[in-house]
Nucleic acid binder design. Sequence first.
DNA 1: AAGCTTCTGTTAGAGGTTCTAACAACAGTG
DNA 2: CACTGTTGTTAGAACCTCTAACAGAAGCTT
Lengths: 213, 213
Amino acid sequence: MPTTTPRDRYREQVRTEAKSIAWEQIGASGASGLSLNAIAKQMGVSGPALYRYFAGRDELMTELISDAYTDIAAALRAAAVREKDDRKRPAAVANGLRTWAKRNPHRYLLVWGTPVPGYEAPQTTTDAARKAMAVLLETFAALDVAKGRDALQDDALSGEWAPGTSPRTRRRALAFWTRVHGFVSLEICGHFNGMGFDPDALFAAEVGTLHEV
Amino acid sequence: MPTTTPRDRYREQVRTEAKSIAWEQIGASGASGLSLNAIAKQMGVSGPALYRYFAGRDELMTELISDAYTDIAAALRAAAVREKDDRKRPAAVANGLRTWAKRNPHRYLLVWGTPVPGYEAPQTTTDAARKAMAVLLETFAALDVAKGRDALQDDALSGEWAPGTSPRTRRRALAFWTRVHGFVSLEICGHFNGMGFDPDALFAAEVGTLHEV
DNA sequence: AAGCTTCTGTTAGAGGTTCTAACAACAGTG
DNA sequence: CACTGTTGTTAGAACCTCTAACAGAAGCTT
């Protein structure tokens, strides 16, 4: 039984506050602008004090990424359970992910953008990844009526990421992930800017094609 | 007539060498590990000397990104002209982009990954972006037989990025870009690792769906 | 050829970062 | 009350970007 002493609670509070300020900084100047020193200063504490709470910049970063991953998984789950109609659920999840990403672009990019050098995915992150994938797999499994075979070899997309799923479900889940990610990452990185087309229309069209795959 | 003096040539040579070392460093430790100082040291020259050649770290980074963008556009063009069969050209271009990205993951991510803070796209980058998009638009325009209307509003995807193209061509070019980017960026960031499915099979399947859109 | 100008390199230094080491002060426990 | 462990402090090493002031070489002009 992990009894939490006052010291433990204080420690956790400091860590939480530091992480919150860290997100502010990342939002302002990107992941590369994250400075343990600046966080300490903003907390009214002097530089190396934070090293009592985080082994270093990398550990803080790793924890931020891990938290973000957990958030994404939760957002996906929430979007999925909110939509009762199996047929409409894929679109709902897609919209949920896009909305979350637009609200938390830096969090999203920390998880699925350019990897940060010193980061080693801990167990909790792997778990969150599995949970996120599970939402997609369940979403498409609900639509799984026997409808003939996929064009692919049945086992080409199998693997430990999706045990006990049908080939079509795996195919759809992966199409969902890669397509939605492609759109969302380009959108939040601003690569659609200045092109002049309507992103909403493109997204809606792409989501529509998920039924066909 | 811009006559190139020996000094100009020397200057250009130094800049080129610096950029080449910069790519090495980025390959080794990511974009955040790029250090003007370290480049200088490796060139056998002392720290601030490089500031005669680049206004600062941001300018060097901007030039690297711009060069990478130009490279991507060239790779797309090369893949397109290599395939004579109009019907097979989309797949050829997709494979060309994926291959280039796997060979130059950092270059790819600098262009289409998480944006780096101090970067402001110069004119040359915008031009390269247009050229890259032009390859996609031409590739799909070649398949443009009158085949009924798109499900979308005809003008929803129009804009200055694609003047004088059909709605279907625009739709396909954007689907190509977002889908291939989604797959490629996840793949080179290592997000498929440990999942256990066959990336080649998924990519082939996704490329196959481009005909249907 | 001589002199002037421009460019290129140097060192010094300010201010930022991460992170370690040594030390002081506090909280909680026997 | 004393002891232990935690938390904060400052000092400092090693890195970074970037500016300033200066030395020397290269090229152009007269």
